[in-house]
Design a protein around this nucleic acid. Structure first.
Lengths: 248, 248
DNA sequence: TTCTAGCATGAACAGTGTTCAGCAGACAAG
DNA sequence: CTTGTCTGCTGAACACTGTTCATGCTAGAA
């Protein structure tokens, strides 16, 4: 027990600095803290200052390890893929494999508040993420679809997952601090809004009001994935993809 | 010609204020200016101060007409739908109608710099936009697909269009101030990066390198829409959509 | 013990969105 | 022609933001 354990005498409180962190600052620790802040504050209130505060460190210290806010977001984005694994391709079963990939993608994007906002527009071509893309492509190609379609499929699926989760998270944020009861009333308001539109001008909206709000997000997500997978499947065993007309 | 047309004498330049704008400030004019600023500065440098500057007006004046930045973005978003028209549903031709809708959606999102970033996450349920959704739904329903699928189709298609345009615009921004030559080299660099990955660990990426970069955006967009439309078509004339297995 | 290299510091800069007391000018009432 | 209210704009301020930089502390090497 050296004297450094004692509190600094009041007269030189200003001269002394706080003891240097026992744990050195690293990118890993910064990313950890960043997630803590994101979960607590959300995307809009996320700031470098909050992250520094969380670590008990000056803001400028962060910039020694991280070039800027964007790079920090990219590190966070990469981090969310830790432990994500894709199975070996099984040509008989590619559709289910793709659907499972989509489900896990959604789960990943829901694992932190507003994560979808950070993910949006990130292309997963960093060295850390390439193996994931490789394995996804393996599954697509094993299905027998043309390479051009497979290349598009990856984009298409990722766009869908991210877009869906973004929209989902916006609703979640909007109703974040609402108890079950007020949320129930709010939902009825929305349903009512659609149902009570003038039926002469909005016949289709009125007819579809139940489906616009009522279906659970899980089911909607699954349906979307199914539509995509069916579209992809329609390209198997044909001439490669010109924009010809559709199905059976 | 009253004396107000003369320049103010130098000694009371500080006392006098600039003559009140002959043209009164309106939401319309603010939105116009906002687009000018957006096109010049891009999303990241867009600010209320810049908009005010563009109009020759104090920042706080904007807040008389517009609640906040988000509302201004929403007004801009709505504005982009001005003059967008959808045809009457033609059941024989719904697929082409949908594709045309998608093309126009992309054109709309490309009509202003970074517009895709503003659009993302906006739900088109404002009173101004409901008629558009109504007509889109009319086309979907005329195809004979189950209502539940039609409801999903709108979301799915919008998500695709916006996601595609967002990604597209990020590349456009990244290479905004690059001449044709350096862009050519850059593109070859990227192609090379994929082509020269270790082929034992990345066989699929290497095989698909040409398709990842080479295809034009127009063609990629068209292909994506085609996949979606085929997926939707596969739901026509069957029992309504449980997530059963796929195509023909 | 001395030196050095690297890391964290606080202060500063140039911006941001948003609010608010107060004033200029137009228009209506007397 | 005066008076007064009302509206819409102003300027200044607040509380933040991301990012940079000279300064100086501290740990490990010589």
């Amino acid at each position: 027990m050296s004297e450094t354990d004692l509190p600094a005498p009041p007269w030189d409180r200003n001269r002394r600095r706080p003891a240097p962190a026992k744990v050195p600052l690293t990118r890993e620790r910064i990313v950890d803290a960043a997630f803590t802040v994101l979960d607590r504050e959300g995307y809009d209130r996320f700031s470098m200052r909050q992250v520094a505060l969380e670590l008990g460190v000056a803001v400028s210290a962060l910039y020694v390890h991280v070039a800027n806010k964007d790079e920090l977001f990219e590190l966070m984005y990469n981090r969310t893929f830790d432990g994500a694994e894709l199975p070996d391709p099984d040509p008989e079963n590619w559709q289910e494999q793709i659907k499972e990939f989509a489900r896990r993608g959604r789960a990943r994007l829901r694992s932190h508040r507003d994560l979808a906002r950070i993910s949006m527009g990130h292309v997963p071509f960093s060295p850390e993420l390439l193996p994931h893309v490789e394995r996804l492509m393996a599954i697509f190609r094993s299905s027998g679809m043309p390479d051009l379609v497979a290349a598009m499929a990856g984009d298409l699926l990722s766009t869908y997952i991210e877009g869906f989760c973004l929209e989902e998270s916006m609703w979640l944020e909007r109703y974040r601090d609402m108890d079950e009861a007020t949320w129930e009333t709010k939902r009825n308001e929305i349903m009512g809004y659609f149902a009570e539109l003038p039926p002469d001008r909005f016949p289709n909206m009125v007819a579809m009001a139940p489906y616009m709000v009522d279906e659970s997000n899980d089911y909607r997500f699954e349906l979307g994935v199914d539509i995509l997978v069916r579209g992809l499947a329609s390209y198997i065993g044909r001439a490669s993809g010109s924009a010809g007309s559709a199905a059976p």
